[in-house]
Amino acid sequence: MDGFQAYGAGKAGGAFDPLTFIRQPQTVVRILCWLFSIVILGCVANEGYVNRPEEVEEYCIFNRNQNACSFAVTMGTLGFLCSAAFLALDVYFPQISGVKDRKKAVMADIVVSALWSFLWFVGFCFLANQWQVSKAEDNPLNEGADAARATIVFSFFSIFTWALLALLALHRFKLGADSVTLNQDYVDPNPQEVMEPPPSEE
């Protein structure tokens, strides 16, 4: 029973091991999601808006559609915060003593990661479309083109990293459910039955 694990972590109260934590697949992928969100947010916030000499107000480089830039900034910001929050939850997860609480945390990870994967898919399609239909005369100097392409590329990557997080969480959920079931079904043998040899047939 010492090796019993519930939803990917051992018994609560163990010491935190940073090296083991960093090497976990979900930690690596979650850090990638966090970095991708920073890149997307930085690209759009810094170079996503340009203005022509005769215009005073800046406009979005994605087909002059302010909604596209606002969407990318919002997604980048919320993706950054969500990744950081679940990274903190991963650190705290082994300290959660209740099996039901661990189950809820893993289920939340599955739902949120799957939702983010879908949102990034929508975002990628939206941004790619708006960039494709952008007019050259709106941005004659081609300002922010690299930032726009980077935003689209990292939005595409984010689809798969968040989907991978959902799959990893689903795997943890299945392993956790199986281990909890085995733990509940386990019955210690009667010591007397073990010590006494079976009656010999004569």
Rank of each mutant, 00 (worst) to 15 (best):
D2P: 04
G3R: 13
Q5K: 15
A6S: 15
K11F: 11
A12T: 11
A15I: 10
L19V: 12
T20F: 05
F21G: 05
F21V: 04
R23H: 07
R23L: 10
R23W: 04
Q24S: 12
V28A: 03
R30T: 06
R30K: 11
I31N: 01
I31L: 12
I31C: 04
W34E: 08
L35Y: 05
S37K: 04
S37A: 15
V39I: 15
V44S: 01
N46K: 14
E47Y: 15
E47C: 09
E47F: 14
R52N: 15
P53M: 12
P53Q: 10
P53K: 09
E55F: 10
E55N: 14
E57A: 14
E58W: 11
E58P: 00
C60M: 14
I61A: 05
I61W: 06
N63W: 11
R64M: 13
N65A: 14
N67Q: 14
C69F: 06
S70V: 06
A72I: 01
A72L: 12
A72K: 00
V73H: 00
V73P: 00
T74K: 09
T77W: 11
T77L: 15
G79W: 00
L81F: 13
L81R: 02
S83M: 02
A84D: 02
A88P: 00
L89T: 03
L89H: 02
L89Q: 06
D90W: 01
V91A: 06
F93I: 01
Q95E: 11
Q95D: 06
I96W: 03
I96Y: 03
S97Y: 08
G98K: 12
V99W: 05
K103A: 09
K104I: 08
A105P: 03
V106R: 03
V111K: 07
V112W: 03
S113I: 06
S113E: 07
A114H: 02
W116I: 02
F118I: 12
F118S: 09
L119C: 09
V122N: 04
G123L: 07
F124N: 04
C125S: 12
C125I: 03
C125K: 09
L127G: 00
A128P: 00
A128N: 12
Q132S: 14
V133K: 13
V133W: 06
K135M: 09
K135I: 05
A136W: 02
E137N: 04
E137W: 02
D138V: 01
P140T: 03
P140R: 03
P140Q: 03
L141P: 00
N142S: 11
N142W: 04
E143A: 07
G144W: 00
A145S: 13
A145P: 00
A147R: 05
R149E: 15
I152Y: 00
V153A: 14
S155H: 13
F156V: 07
F156M: 15
F157I: 11
S158F: 06
I159T: 10
F160D: 11
F160K: 09
T161G: 05
A163W: 11
L164A: 14
A166Y: 05
A166L: 07
L167F: 11
A169G: 07
R172N: 13
F173E: 08
K174M: 10
A177T: 13
S179R: 10
S179F: 04
T181Y: 05
Q184E: 14
D185T: 03
Y186L: 10
V187I: 11
V187R: 15
D188R: 12
P189G: 09
E193C: 08
M195P: 01
M195D: 14
E196G: 03
P198N: 04
P199E: 13
S200K: 09
S200C: 01
